[in-house]
Amino acid sequence: MAFLVPWKSIGFEVRAPRALRTAPSTGWTRRWVPSPRLVPTRPAVSWRSLVSTASPDQVVGAEPTVPLIDLRGKRALITGIANQRSIAYGVAQQLRRAGAELGITYLPVNERAESKVSKLVEPLGASFLHACDVQSRSDLEGLFETIKQKWGGLDILVHCLAFANREDLEGDFSRTSRNGFNVALNVSTYSFIEMCGLAKPLFRNGGSVVTLSYLGAERVVPNYNVMGVAKAGLECAVRYLAAELGPDCGVRVNGVSAGPIRTLASSAISGITTMIRNVEQNAPLRRTVTQEEVGKAATFLLSDAASGITGQILYVDSGYAIMGSPSFASPRDGNVANS
């Protein structure tokens, strides 16, 4: 909004039009002279003082401007951080940047696990760091009891957990062992359902949940095998949980289907390098995505900016999911055989 200096503060003088003034070269003056016009003199103040811009919170009746994604005052539980390459770590960074207060879990695989994750997330200022093996009901109950005691409630749940035995991520899918199938579905799918059930009494109205999926949930990806089945179950669980938690406690549930990224978990998949190279060659953006990009998309879904979205899977894969076949060379390149 602009504020103008009052007209009374500007002086005026009588001045003839420029074309009718005395010509310096000849000294003569035109014989007809029109009525003089008023020309405002330069005010004593700087021109910058003539117009001033007011910020929205200075304008009467205007509300203060806030960012579109503002998670200040929100409390978020993040699961699945193993190292700096973890997608969960990228999500945690973006949530903290948006102002959320974080609680973080780690898998107690050995004595060094806690100190490793603790050092990594120290810049995020997490309120607590809690050991949790999702295959243990007592660990999960202890986690949500800690949330109840420290926070009293929960706004955001981020599920970034998946696991399958390495031998079940290569070769023929039909050779998947019974135990391997149970482990993959238990960690990657059932843990999501169980955590949402335990979090349900703690969710505050307007809360949100995000989990991570992959294209292998709906299309065949070589060597993804049992994990594809687990992710398909996970995406189905997103829809059923959205239908339950929406009416019961106003909570939204969504998933992010990320493109292949080099992480500790993906390193177990045979041919992960080839998968990434294939995306770089055929995705519309001709590249794969980063943890930061997935984190930004997840933060959007977890914020009020996505208040009307639930039960959906958002693809963050440089557009690879839209492609029906690999890219072919143009006929003018001489690389395509004549039909």
Rank of each mutant, 00 (worst) to 15 (best):
F181K: 05
Y240E: 03
I313H: 10
I104M: 12
S307W: 06
G246H: 10
A23W: 09
Y315P: 07
L314M: 15
P64W: 00
I269F: 13
S86E: 09
S208F: 06
L124H: 07
N254A: 08
Y214C: 01
G295D: 01
G73L: 02
N254S: 13
V210E: 05
Y89P: 01
S174P: 00
Q149S: 14
A2T: 06
V316F: 06
A242E: 13
L245M: 11
G250T: 05
S325H: 14
I313L: 15
T288H: 13
M1I: 08
E111R: 15
N282P: 03
Q135S: 07
S330H: 15
G233K: 08
T273R: 12
I261N: 04
G250V: 09
M227V: 07
R30D: 04
E167Q: 15
N83A: 02
F144P: 05
G324P: 03
L185N: 06
S52I: 09
V60F: 08
V117S: 10
E145C: 08
D155S: 13
G125R: 13
V45C: 02
R37D: 03
V210F: 11
L143G: 03
V51P: 00
N282E: 06
M323G: 03
G206M: 10
I104F: 07
Q84H: 13
L198T: 06
M1E: 11
P34M: 08
P260V: 00
Y214A: 01
L212H: 09
Q58G: 06
A19S: 03
Y224K: 01
M323W: 02
R287P: 00
T176L: 08
Q281P: 01
S266N: 14
V51M: 14
V33Q: 15
Q84C: 01
I10G: 00
S127H: 14
Y315A: 07
S49H: 08
I322F: 13
V183C: 02
P6A: 08
W7T: 10
I276F: 03
Y106D: 07
A54Q: 11
V336Q: 12
W28T: 04
